[in-house]
Design a protein around this nucleic acid. Sequence first.
RNA 1: CGGGGUGUGGCUCAGGUGGUAGAGCGCUUGGUUCGGGACCAAGAGGCCGCAAGUUCAAGUCUUGUCACUCCGACCA
Length: 478
Amino acid sequence: MSKKQKMVEAITPRDEDFSRWYTDICMRAELCSYSTVRGCVILRPYGYAIWELITSELDQRFKKTGHVNVMMPLFIPESLLQKEKDHVEGFAPEVAWVTHGGDEELTERLCVRPTSETLFCDHYADVIESWRDLPKLYNQWVSVVRWEKTTRPFLRTREFFWQEGHTAHATAEEAMKETLMILELYEEFYKSALAIPVLSGEKSESEKFAGAVNTYTVEAMMHDGKALQAGTSHYFGDGFAKAFNIQFADRDNQLQYVHQTSWGVSSRSIGGIIMVHGDDDGLVLPPAVAPIQVVIIPIAPHKDGVLEEAFRLKKTVENAGFRVKLDDSDRMPGWKFAEYEMKGVPIRLELGPRDIEKRSCVAVTRDNREKTVVPLDHIVEVLPEMLDDLNNRLYENAYERLTSRIYDVSDWDTFVQTIDEKPGFVRAPWCGEPECEVKVKDITKATSRLIDGDVGASHRCVVCDRPALHMVIWGKAY
RNA sequence: CGGGGUGUGGCUCAGGUGGUAGAGCGCUUGGUUCGGGACCAAGAGGCCGCAAGUUCAAGUCUUGUCACUCCGACCA
């Protein structure tokens, strides 16, 4: 304890106050900073670097599956936003409006995009004429604005960064296939790039996207047991196509409506990384999205040969394709250890006179603090394995936390008690009626996160005891 | 949008009954240090969130306002 108290700027322990711990990490790891606009954050270089890596990981996957990037305007005319009834109703309460250009009041006010379905639809109506124009597999990397009342860095900000994919297809089957393919893509991305296990499935009627026929979701469990909706993929059927008149001539020269999808993952995923992997010493980053994968700390750098050897080591590691930083500042080594742990750097290499004498360095892995003496000649062979192992440990630990905290219950009292007392998810049958979801939310604050398959009539709804239709994962969510 | 909390150097905070602002950390410079957040010395840095009001006099009292933060209702 006394050691901890000597720390210049310790963060709030995770188990003492989870949300304070979370904001402490955001600030101390220099991911972001509050801006003067309430509810908006400034992404600082380190936070932005993480986002860049996330975008690059996802973008590669989108490109591989045939998608191309575009850019839609920032503004949506009010009349355009209103074309699809459910869609407007869903977003109206949280849109920001532009009413003036200079001193002049606009004849039609413009909404700052909260999402771009209407813009894509308007454009698709313009450019799609024939079956030869399909499918359209578009994506865009932009920020959107939703005038949120309660905001938290990354998890809920008024402006946030994301990708939104919007596709148009000739048939319903093809559109549904796209919807589910993206869902799998997200699942795989979360697993291999972020080391975050997710549950995937369909949203209930009341939780689905405004204007969608079906919404599919990937849900992650944070360290405190709460759910984070980590990505969604929507099947629109031809609802938007009819509202926006997006038609094409098929092979028989018959006019048909297109079938559409949309899907997104946002900068909220950074919040997920923090809350799944972070610990009391700060951030823990999965190697794929760590801006610095290896940090080299020279010990006693003023002594002969130390810095030279450190630079040599840096070159070696860099040439092998790793993102590496050598901190040759005049901070104390202990300070640097703590600093890069705060920033979640996966591997630290300590290099001092004693190591150099033995032609080795000390490698320390961020998640378990394990120290390994590595011969300098072997560092390049050892690093990939260390990073890989670290990634696997992060995933395995998170997977264990997830699966061990999903509780199967079948009666109402146990249901309420479990949600109240045990952090995590509850799996219980549901009849499919929205009023049962409302009751669950009113009493427990938990919501249906996703539908985890259908069940036979032998199951009864955990709320109303009528025959159940679905097995549902319930939980409190961010 | 409701309830609570907080606004004083970059950060954390101290400033009984009003009398014109302080500490620690951080920062700068020089030196000694360097295997878990070093030490010494010398510096820089503040119209006390903002606006009215009371007063000879306001960081301190009154009112208003704004911002941030936490907890609830709504959402990625």
